[in-house]
Amino acid sequence: MQANFTAGADTPKQICFFCDGDALQVLVAARDLIHMGWKLVHHPLYGNYRPHQQPYRSILLQREAENSGLSHEQNPTQDQSLNPAYQCLAPDPASLQLIEAALDVYRADRVLNPQQVPDVMLRDCSQLDYELMRLPLEQAGWEAA
């Protein structure tokens, strides 16, 4: 779903990647960013839904502003060699362990794809994902719209 969040006035700036793929792909993308030094804000396995029960998964990562390479003008998906967001810093061991444990859970189960979900449920699933991400987003400085 489109973010109902806007960046607060004096909060770190944010980018949002939408992953092409399922929840497992989101976790893999998060792992890759963790390898580059981004840290998890929250536990990747939030919610009491199993991989075959909830098609959506969102991961919030952060690092110090000067290494984030984020600005409204820059598109972080281009020119990766120049963008500080892609500069490799030492990975945070705690984030690494958590994301690998989450990947183990997802690899051991059938992963539900949004395409496999009836519309009425998709709406609910998306809303629940948003609700469970509320606290991490709030604490990271995003204000609910």
Partner: peptide
């Protein structure tokens, strides 16, 4: 049992 690591 909050989801954020800092809260934990």
């Amino acid at each position: 049992e909050n989801v954020t690591l800092a809260d934990k």
